[in-house]
Amino acid sequence: MARSNRRSYDLRIMLAMAVYVTVFLMFWPLVRSATDPLAKFAYALAPVPPLLYVIWVMALRILRSDELQQRQHLIGLGVATVVVSIVSIVAGFLAAADLLALDTTSIILVWIFPLMIIAYSVARGYAARRYGGSAMCDDDERMPAYQRFLFGAAISLFIAGIVYLRNGAHPAVDIIVAMALVQIIAATLFGVRYARRERLPPP
């Protein structure tokens, strides 16, 4: 994938995730107070479109990758499928035997997609390292990791500001600000590494 496309991909994913978090925090809670069935459906499914957009952008990225990158995506997706399957079946058997209390009718399903994405990202990062790349895919075709984390922190703080202005002091604000702080620390660490690498001659 060309450098400009990779940077555009990073920006599109981050903006879509920002929209998702904003919608999830601002609109999804309204589902409990809505009385009209259509409004309930609309509020309940409001976070889905930005996630579908993320999936579509990821699919395009995989289709436009070269053969080695496609192999790494395949490894990531395979590992993610195995992880989600094992977690689901183990939790399912434990819940069926009343050894694990799972609210299987609601919020537990929401965590399947994030679990899959996390497992995919870790496995793909491992595969990239195995083939001589970086676990953070911090190559010269992509927005550097420290910029991604900085951008993520800026988006997080923006969302925290919106939630604070709308709801005042709220636990969600603390969580988002904590996320931003973690991203700033990560940006600093990756920024130092990036500066060191920039001093090295290109291969």
Binding site: S65, G132, D139
Partner: peptide, 22 residues
């Protein structure tokens, strides 16, 4: 070759064998 720099590096270091078309 319309591939990533990482792919070239992986081929050169023997970590990846290219497909026949590549």
């Amino acid at each position: 070759l319309e591939v990533s720099r990482q792919t070239i590096n992986a081929i050169e270091t023997g970590k990846y064998d290219p497909s026949l078309p590549l």
